[in-house]
Design a protein around this nucleic acid. Structure first.
Lengths: 233, 233
DNA sequence: TGTGACATAAAAGTCGTACTTTTAATTCCC
DNA sequence: GGGAATTAAAAGTACGACTTTTATGTCACA
C-alpha cells in the first residue's frame, strides 16, 4: 500500500499525508517523531523534515514536550494541491469532489467573463480548437480523448482570465474532471448539451461577449452540479 | 528588518519566504544550503527543513548536484495563506490585492446564495448582529471597529455556505479587508451604500432568499472592484 | 485542604560530522 | 567530433550529543 516513491522523504510524506487526510488519525492524536522514525525505518532527520512540511499544510502541529498533534479538518490548507490529491485518493472523495465542483461553479463563469476581455488571439484559437476536439471525441466511447480536450479547454479559460488565482485552479479542475471521468459510469458518452455549450463559450470569448461567455459557463457549471446530485444524492 | 520569531526555523523561513515572494531572487536563481546555513548562521539541518517547506509551497525546487532553484511565480501555491501574507507584505501588494478581490467577487456571491439555504439560526443572528455593528460604526472615523464587524460578517457568510473551500477563504478575505482599511485613505468613512447592502444581505439570508442574497453580494463585490480601480487605475 | 513555587523529565529543537547518492560537467579515447 | 568513462559538487541520509521548552508531578506553606 506504500507508494514506491524516489527518496525516503517523499515516501514518508506521502504515506503520512494520505493517512492523516484519510482521517486515520483523529484530530488530537499525538505522534512522536522517534516513534515515526522507527515505524518507517528512517532517521529522525527525515521524519522531522516531513513533519515540518505537514505542519506548513496545517495538518499537524508540533509542540515541545507534547509531540506532533493531528489538527482538525477545519485548519487544513484545503487549497494545497497535494492535500487535494490526497483527499481525492482517500475516503471522503465524494465530499471533496462536491466542494470542488461548487468552487468551480463560482469561479469559472467569472473567469470566462474575464477571458472574453483578456484572451489573446492565440488563446481564442486554442479555445476553439479544444472545443472542436471535444465535439470530435464526444461520441463513440472516446472518453479519454474527450477528457484531454475538456481539461485543456477549462485550463485555457482560467489562464486567459488573466487572474493568477483563477489560473492556479487549472490543476484542481483537471483533478475534478479526471475524477469524474474515471469514477462515474464510463459507459455513456458526454452530454451533447454540455459539448455544445463549450463550443458556444469559445465563440463568445472570440467575439468578446463577456456576459454571454459568463452565462454559458454558468450553464456548464449547473450541469456539473446536477450530474453530482444524480451520482451522489 | 528580520522578524523576531521564536525559533530559528520560523525566522529563516520567514526571511527566505518573504525575499523569494518579493522577487528578490529571480526565477532560476540557485541557492546552496551550505551557503544559506552560513548566511543565517544556523545549522544545515535548519536550512534543509526550511527548504523542504518552501519546496512544498512550490517556491523552490531542490535537485542534487544543482542546488535549490527558485521557481517562477506561475508555479507558486498562491492559495497558501503564508504565501499570501508574504506577498501582501511585499512589493506586489497591489497586484495581489486585485487578484484576491477578483476572487472574492466570484466566490462570495455564490457563498451568500448557499448561505441563504444553509445558515443556521445562530448564523443568521450573528450575521444580523455584525451588519448592525457595521451600521453603528460606519460614521465618525471608527474604521478599526468597522473593520472587525466587516471581517466577521464575511466570515460568517463563507462559513454558513456550508462549503469547506469557501469557508477557508475567510482568512483571505480578512487579509484583503484589513489591507484595504490600512492602506487606503483612512480619512473617509465607509461607503453608506455598501453598509446598507450588508444589512440587506443579512436580511435576505434570514428570509432564505438565495437569489437576492447572491445578487446583493454581487453588488458589494462590484463596489469593492470599483474602489480598487479608483485607488490603483 | 487547597495553592503556589519548585523540580523533573519528556519531547522537540539544534548542531556537527560522517557518509551515500545522484548527476552535471569534464576528460579522454576512438 | 562524438560518445563513454571519470570526477566532483551538491543534496540526501544517518547518528549522536546537546539545548530548550514545558506539561506534570511534588512538596512546602498557608
Amino acid at each position: 500500500m506504500t507508494t514506491p516513491a524516489q527518496g525516503l522523504h517523499s515516501h514518508v510524506l506521502a504515506t503520512l499525508g494520505l493517512a492523516i487526510t484519510a482521517g486515520e488519525y483523529p484530530p488530537g492524536t499525538v505522534l512522536r517523531t522517534d516513534e515515526l522514525a522507527q515505524r518507517f525505518d528512517v532517521s529522525r532527520t527525515v521524519v522531522r523534515e516531513v513533519v515540518r512540511v505537514l505542519e506548513s499544510m496545517h495538518l499537524v502541529e508540533s509542540r515541545r514536550r507534547v509531540g506532533v498533534t493531528v489538527l482538525p479538518t477545519a485548519s487544513w490548507n484545503v487549497y494545497d494541491p497535494q492535500v487535494i490529491r490526497w483527499r481525492l485518493a482517500g475516503a471522503d472523495r465524494p465530499r471533496q469532489l462536491r466542494s470542488l465542483t461548487v468552487l468551480r461553479s463560482a469561479v469559472e463563469p467569472v473567469a470566462a467573463g474575464l477571458a472574453a476581455h483578456n484572451a489573446t488571439p492565440d488563446q481564442c484559437r486554442e479555445l476553439t480548437e479544444q472545443a472542436l476536439g471535444m465535439v470530435a471525441t464526444s461520441r463513440g466511447r472516446r472518453l479519454e480523448e474527450y477528457l484531454v480536450h475538456d481539461i485543456a479547454f477549462h485550463r485555457v479559460v482560467l489562464n486567459a482570465s488573466g487572474n493568477e488565482m483563477f489560473a492556479r485552479l487549472g490543476d484542481v479542475v483537471a483533478e475534478v474532471l479526471t475524477g469524474r471521468t474515471h469514477h462515474h459510469v464510463m459507459f455513456e458518452d458526454p452530454d451533447p448539451a454540455a459539448v455544445t455549450l463549450h463550443v458556444q463559450v469559445a465563440e463568445a470569448v472570440r467575439e468578446r461577449n463577456a456576459a454571454r461567455a459568463e452565462e454559458l459557463t454558468r450553464q456548464i457549471a449547473v450541469g456539473a452540479l446536477q450530474e453530482l446530485d444524480v451520482l451522489a444524492p
